[in-house]
Write a protein that binds this DNA or RNA. Sequence first.
DNA 1: GTGAATAGTTAAACAGTTGAACTAAATTAG
DNA 2: CTAATTTAGTTCAACTGTTTAACTATTCAC
Lengths: 153, 153
Amino acid sequence: MTNQIIQELIDRYVTVSFQVHKKAESLIKGKIGDDLTNDQHYILRYISQSRECTSSELADAFEVNKSAITAIINRMADKGLIKRTRDENDRRVVYLTLTDEGNILYQNCQEKIQFLVESIITQFEESEIKNFINTYEKLAQILDKKKKEELGE
Amino acid sequence: MTNQIIQELIDRYVTVSFQVHKKAESLIKGKIGDDLTNDQHYILRYISQSRECTSSELADAFEVNKSAITAIINRMADKGLIKRTRDENDRRVVYLTLTDEGNILYQNCQEKIQFLVESIITQFEESEIKNFINTYEKLAQILDKKKKEELGE
DNA sequence: GTGAATAGTTAAACAGTTGAACTAAATTAG
DNA sequence: CTAATTTAGTTCAACTGTTTAACTATTCAC
């Protein structure tokens, strides 16, 4: 690739990734409504998909400090959406689970988001969207490696 | 596409887009350092690329309220990075420009981010990354249309 | 058993966001 | 030409998310 082509690709990538993220967040927010923030919805998703979810795991996945997770979980626990349970074997560990109320709210939002994403994905050819997601996943791996490199320096 | 395939694609997409966004933000933050937030850096980028940038335009691009932009611009103007200039023809309008200091800081960060993105992009075959960005841009358009549909309802 | 590591919390400080109320200027409609 | 409406932007209160540093409580390693 020539320098010029690379410059152009960088510019297009930076612009479009920003735009897509902002637009997607905005659409999802419209679906979720005022009961949850997007982050909170994603945390409910993460907890419901993980077998034994802890604050540290969330902090890792979200790439934020554990205290940021504590704050979010506090708010959601106050609203009765999440329950904390101490591990009896290692009493430092706290497992996070959805309450019934949290689960109902999550499923409700999830369904709407599912519809939204489906209505978007199905506008692409199957091969195009599959290639897209494949590259996206490769990108995630590369970013992960990059992150570890930077930390290792 | 069968329902099952669609479900799987939705799940992969939601997961990977979240991951890539978090990882990319985290890497960029590492490059920018403590002088700017990622949002602030992107605002500098936007202003420096736009000929006559206003708060309303930024609010539109960022999909947030104008008052959110006012708050960000206030902080950056206080730090001497951005200058406000009233339009003499339409005195409601305020144009935003970078100060020299703002421009130097921006260029400095921009260079590092450029290197970062380049080191990532060049790990893909030219055709793969081009296809990826093409689909990404198509996605941006679809999301835009979707947004307008939702507003129109 | 003592010192280091781990899981999580707390508190202060700040960035980002919303919604509503506001100012000031421009546009439009009668 | 005035009055009502729209537009650009700001202010304020309230809230979410984040970081950093200091802290508690527990477990691990030697």
